[in-house]
Amino acid sequence: MTAITNGLPRDRMLSEPRDLDLRGKSGSRALKNSVATAVMWAAFAIAVIPLVWILLTVAVKGGHLILDSTWWTNSQQGITARREGGGAVHAIQGTLIQGLVTALISVPIGVLTAVYLVEYGRGRFARIVSFMVDILTGVPSIVAGLFIYAVFITTFGFTRAGIFVCLSLTLLMIPVVVRSTEEMLKLVPNELREAAYALGVPKWKTIFSVVLPTAFSGIITGVLLGLARVMGETAPLLILGPYTKAIATDLFGGNMATLPTMINQDRDQAVTLPAYDRIWAAALTLILLILLLNLLGRLAGRFSKV
């Protein structure tokens, strides 16, 4: 360790007192610094290695399929596990449709809940609402799926359909939207609210015309990140959204494919190479979709006004 030998010899410091000596490093401090740096880099590597490994494996094993244009145009209709070919457009469509509908339901509820908590909520009721959001954040996805199953399928006697998948994903997405929107609304300076009040603008109008537009891009970021999170969910889809190999866009009846259920389906039949390849390709497609949403979310965050 050069850092240690660089330190001044002790006897010289004692025999020749100087006014101010800034040369050299303190040996033990330099050592601690090196150790801490090494530990941090090691922790970083441990965190990143599995991530890179997964991405590489998925890209290598599924990459050739998604580079084929039929992957993006064809469904799996008429294709068996032993046959190559077909695409994932049915699953991509299903995932996007269900994600969109989930967002359409959760965003108004989540944003308005956050507006209530930040702008109106005082006292006991607001604390209860906030606590409920915390609980909802911790609900495992399979519990959300089973809850919707218990209410709509077991109790009301509906058959399984895409819309129930959306409802269960909504349960998972609402708390994410509430929390991220809440943070963004808190960042809007109070002075802007006061400026609007002082112009004789009513409170609700201040919130909709000044506070929400100011926080808009931040809210969009939160929504996209929340959406990215629920689009990769699998458990509620296995419970509520039976798979089909054909293109199906009806949320209210019949089976509907999604990328996670496609992965699961092919895994069931993965004794053969074509199905095995399709698992990796579907996984890669899902990762790319979610990556895209994340990037869009970050991009929206750049235009933030707060």
Partner: peptide
């Protein structure tokens, strides 16, 4: 109070134009 504030305007310590 909303009507009062339309009659009695206010300018604040820190300039606070609406950023959007």
């Amino acid at each position: 109070p909303v009507g009062v504030r339309r009659t009695v305007g206010m300018v604040f310590q820190r300039p606070n134009p609406f950023p959007t």
